[in-house]
Amino acid sequence: MKGYLAFTKKEFVEQIRTYRLLICLSVFFLFGLMSPLLAKLLPEILSGMDLQGMVLAIPEATAMDAYAQFFKNITQMGIIVILLVFGGVISNELTKGTLINILAKGLGRHTVILAKYTAMLVLWTLALAFASLVNHGYTMYMFDTSDISNLLFSLFCLWLFGAFLLSLIILSSVLTGGNFGGLILTVVVLGGLLILDLFPKLEKVNPIYLSSHNLEFLTGALMPADALLPVLVTIALLIGNILVSISLFNHKKL
């Protein structure tokens, strides 16, 4: 337990001193800020365009448009940032050899995985919470937010998807070698999941569900009960990823 706390603390120090914390918080802050702004500006830009006499009937932007932008930003750009920031989480230490001293001190290998996952999860949680607060604040400032429903649940789905993604990064990082191996494998697996998402029958056993229906919870088109299966499947996969990572890492040559 002491080793776990010590190594988790080391991970936090690393996040701060290697600028990962700064990057995540600034980018997610911008997502929160730009989403309502883009929602507001897009219709104005479009209506301002000279379309040679054609008249576009563009409805006034709403809070839903702001949230549509927000979810799009987080699930596209946000995930790219997460991949860039965490892609080398284990492979960096393995290729450099910094873990050797630490493991030679008798720190359990499972502790390394769990501590790293904890620190990643905390940073993801902070970044998403920060972005959500900023986004909601600015959306309230610009639009009427009274008809938004299931907001917290929708955000929880997004958070859980991120948590799953982080466990996938850890597993890929343990499986592959090299600096970018973990990153590439994660992208390949994500691509595979996106292809599977094209089959409606498999939609609900795919973690992608949690990142592709967020707006529908807000409009009330979907209710939390609809997401029960995807939530359970994703939690199971996440735990599975971590357990397999630990078992593989225990048998890795160093």
């Binding site: 600028y19 600034s26 802050f29």
Partner: peptide, 24 residues
Amino acid sequence: EYLPFIIPIIIVELVLMVAALVHL
């Protein structure tokens, strides 16, 4: 009307740019 957006964006941009420049 857009100042509450523009000012934070510029601040974040500058912070990131300066941090990266100092480091590199």
